[in-house]
């Protein structure tokens, strides 16, 4: 019993370390929670492999340094060993693929009835957010980044495309990005879980002002969101602020 508890505590500690290692943002959507799990599994597996293989590389360097001019035994194969070190990595990647496959399906799942839909248009070098079913159109400029307002704990469907070159919609706190390509409509769901302001930006190089193609995502309470919609997108009505993340 005690050993089980120790094991649990150790593995929890390792998991925290695994993510702490990468200073990964906490994940501000339900989708991001799943993505964060994926990071955790891969980081831990990676650390494990790193420790084992670093050990295997460094061990001979310390133990079998040249001390005499004699030649060591000239062995060059061991079929059983070779089979083992082919199969173990194979099993590992199969397991990792299973995790990946499961998580990707959850993240990319499109709900049948999203509460809100926003058409996002990327262009050189800013964004247009159009709230479908309303007259709200938020257009930004390179030095005046637009703000995407989303309700907390509600699913919002994003339909993403570009009017010129390739762009990429990235909100680091959501651990998620998706390409905006002319002629392609990309849809995904976001379900924020924390009120706050999050930075977003274009991630695909799209020309000289690519670095300035930013935006913010403001996640507000559902009441605030309803008020904001009624006010035609005027941000004066928003009360809950939250921290910028």
């Amino acid at each position: 019993m005690r050993s089980a508890r120790t094991l649990l505590a150790t593995s929890l500690l390792l998991c925290t370390a695994g993510c702490g290692v990468y200073a990964l943002p906490a994940g501000a959507t339900t989708q991001a929670q799943v993505l964060r799990q994926d990071w955790m599994v891969f980081t831990l597996a990676g650390l494990f492999v790193a420790v084992v293989v670093f050990g295997l590389i460094l061990f001979p360097l310390f133990v079998w340094r040249r001390r005499s001019n004699d030649y060591p035994v000239q062995f060059s194969q061991n079929s059983k060993l070779e089979l083992i070190y082919t199969i173990i990595p194979l099993l590992m990647v199969i397991a990792l693929f299973a995790v990946t496959y499961r998580d990707e399906i959850i993240v990319e799942h499109l709900g049948a009835h999203p509460a809100n839909t926003v058409d996002v248009l990327a262009f050189q070098w800013s964004w247009r957010f159009h709230y479908v079913g309303t007259a709200i159109n938020i257009v930004g400029m390179p030095n005046a980044p637009p703000q995407l307002v989303l309700p907390v704990d509600e699913t919002t469907r994003i339909n993403l495309t570009s009017s010129d070159v390739n762009h990429e919609f990235w909100v680091p706190a959501f651990l998620f990005k998706r390409d905006a390509i002319a002629g392609v409509k990309n849809s995904f769901d976001l379900r924020p879980i924390r009120v706050g302001v999050y930075l977003g930006r274009c991630a695909e190089f799209c020309g000289f002002d690519h670095a300035l193609m930013t935006f913010t995502v403001r996640v507000v309470s559902q009441a605030d969101y309803a008020r904001w919609l009624r006010a035609g997108g005027s941000s004066i009505v928003l009360s809950s602020e939250g921290a910028t993340l």
Partner: peptide
């Protein structure tokens, strides 16, 4: 892509196996 990790891993083990019980000079 994951599968490529397997033959790449094999190469690492080959190099480790070559150094194993060798007479290594830096």
């Amino acid at each position: 892509s994951f599968l490529i990790a397997v033959p790449t891993g094999v190469k690492f083990f080959n190099w480790v196996g070559t150094m194993w019980r060798g007479s290594i000079v830096f």
